[in-house]
């Protein structure tokens, strides 16, 4: 069986908010290491990779690997019924037809349980290689969110160019063009999460659809910083670390000149 108790139930709401615009269903894989999800959007342009490590839960028991296929829209509806301060317990049997969500208020004066039907989902797992990124940019997540929103007001595609001087975001649309350059500032007086850091072995430049990048920024409440990893002619990775728990990562295929 599987049973996991999460003290900060609000975290689940944030995780679901970060994926609900991209996928409508997914297999949550319960394993002794934790709860994970890998799923692509319907057009197979972007991929979500979530890991919530077992150590991040107050109680975690998983005897064997269990794929828990869930409709994300329905899951959002159910998790919305939990208070943001509630403790959430997720439970299911080894071959589950249903998953139980137990919500306990912080003061222990209200207990609710919801049961949700599972579904069989064809796995479309991809092997994402462990790679060394040519360019890694760490920046405040709110800054990245603002930047993607501003770029999307002008164009559909953003070209991201990373050099050791900084990261340049450029777009073109019917009304004109926009360029925003973010410079690294690691030696300033800012707190760590307010810094922009750039590590590169060689300059990288590629174009990406802003519609997807904007959806990824729904994960902003999960982390004060976001990390972009790029390799020439490969998908970009956009990672939000969840403190003491794991991550939400998005992979996005580039646009390439024919």
């Amino acid at each position: 069986m599987f049973e996991a108790r999460l003290l900060q139930g609000g975290l689940l709401k944030k995780v679901l908010d970060s994926i609900k615009d991209i996928i409508t269903e997914g297999n949550f894989d319960c394993s002794p290491n934790g709860l994970s999800l890998q799923a692509m959007d319907s057009s197979h342009v972007s991929l979500i990779d979530i890991l919530l490590e077992s150590e991040g839960f107050e109680h975690y028991r998983c005897d064997r690997n269990i794929p828990m296929g869930l409709n994300i829209t329905n899951l959002v509806k159910m998790i919305k019924c939990a208070g943001s301060e509630d403790i959430v317990t997720i439970k299911c049997e080894d071959k589950p037809d249903n998953v139980t969500f137990l919500f306990e208020s912080k003061d222990n004066d209200k207990i609710s349980d919801f049961e949700m039907k599972t579904m069989t989902i064809d796995d479309e797992h991809l092997l994402v290689p462990d790679q060394t990124y040519t360019a890694v940019v760490k920046m405040p997540s709110a800054e990245f969110q603002r930047l993607c929103r501003d770029m999307a007001a002008i164009g559909d595609t953003v070209n991201i160019s990373v050099t050791k001087e900084g990261v340049r975001f450029s777009t073109t649309g019917d009304m004109g063009t926009a360029n925003i350059t973010v410079r690294p500032n690691p030696s300033g007086d800012q707190k760590e999460e307010e810094r922009t850091e750039v590590q590169i072995t060689e300059p990288v430049s590629a174009g990406f659809a802003l519609r997807y990048l904007n959806s990824f920024t729904k994960a902003t409440p999960l982390s004060p910083t976001v990390t972009l990893g790029m390799v020439p002619n490969l998908p970009i990775v956009v990672e939000y670390k969840i403190a003491d728990m794991g991550h939400v990562r998005y992979y996005l295929a580039p646009k390439i000149e024919d």
């Binding site: 994402v128 646009k255 390439i256 000149e257």
Partner: peptide
Amino acid sequence: AASQRRLEDFFGAP
């Protein structure tokens, strides 16, 4: 113009 690639063009099946 640049065309949108799919993830399968880069990542294989496990």
